[in-house]
Computed example of a mutant assay.
Amino acid sequence: MRRSSFANWPCSIARTMDLLGDWWTPLVLREAFYGVRRFDEFQHSLGIARNTLTDRLRRLVDEGLMEKQPYQTQPVRHDYVLTEMGRDFFGVLLAMNAWGDRWLADEQGPPIVFHHDRCGHRGRPAVVCDDCGEPMTADDTRPRLGPGYPTRLAERPDVRERFAD
């Protein structure tokens, strides 16, 4: 049975979830950020079924987050390398990691920490306003309709109320 698609929803969160599709895809991307490039390495590190991994890697390549680069010709074998679009997903994984560290880590602390090479310190990600640099939180940030929101939906009273200034 085919699942519903969120690809055309006027919501970047829904579209991102549509692209990710399942729980394995972010883990494949995580492993790529950890330096994994080869099919067998992904399979070994994740313990994922080969057919599932094949599907996830194919989707990531098709959607432009990874690209295949041949490293062997007989038989043909590929490295799976993050593209610019894929590397840009790093912030999403950092945000998920920070949330998990705060709410799901045990008393020993976070299982993985991140070293920021630029400043030389261990860093924790923060979502900040790109204009003022201040943190953006659920208490002080409101969604508003953007230029890509469909006009036919923006005219609905419930939508106007939800995104009112």
Rank of each mutant, 00 (worst) to 15 (best):
R118S: 15
P125T: 12
P70I: 02
R87A: 08
E63M: 01
E67G: 00
W103S: 11
C119I: 12
P70G: 01
G47W: 01
F90P: 00
P111V: 11
G100T: 11
P111F: 09
V128E: 13
L46H: 06
S45G: 05
L104D: 11
N97V: 02
R87G: 03
Y71Q: 08
R58K: 12
P110Q: 13
G64T: 08
E67P: 00
P111G: 11
G64N: 07
V76F: 08
T54K: 08
F89A: 01
R102W: 09
I48D: 03
E84M: 00
A126W: 07
N51T: 12
T73Y: 06
D62Q: 03
V92E: 02
A126K: 10
M96H: 09
R77I: 05
V92F: 04
H78K: 11
T73W: 03
L94G: 02
D130T: 08
R56F: 01
R122F: 11
A126P: 00
E84G: 02
A98M: 09
D55N: 02
D88Y: 07
L104K: 15
R77Q: 13
G100R: 14
M66C: 04
T83P: 02
L94Y: 03
K68V: 02
V128Y: 05
Q108R: 15
G109D: 09
H115R: 13
D117R: 15
Q74K: 15
V61G: 00
A95G: 11
A98I: 01
I48M: 13
T52R: 01
G64Y: 06
Q72V: 00
T73L: 10
V61Q: 01
M85H: 11
L82T: 00
W103C: 10
R50Y: 01
S45E: 10
L104G: 12
G64Q: 08
V113R: 11
R59C: 04
V113S: 14
E63V: 07
V128M: 10
Q108L: 13
H78L: 05
V76E: 11
R50W: 00
G100N: 15
R124C: 03
E67S: 05
C132K: 09
W99A: 12
A126C: 08
L93T: 02
P75T: 08
V128A: 10
D79S: 06
G91M: 01
Q74S: 10
L46V: 07
A105V: 10
L93V: 05
Q43I: 00
V127S: 07
R59A: 11
V76Q: 13
R56M: 02
R122H: 13
R56D: 12
L94Q: 10
N51E: 13
R58T: 10
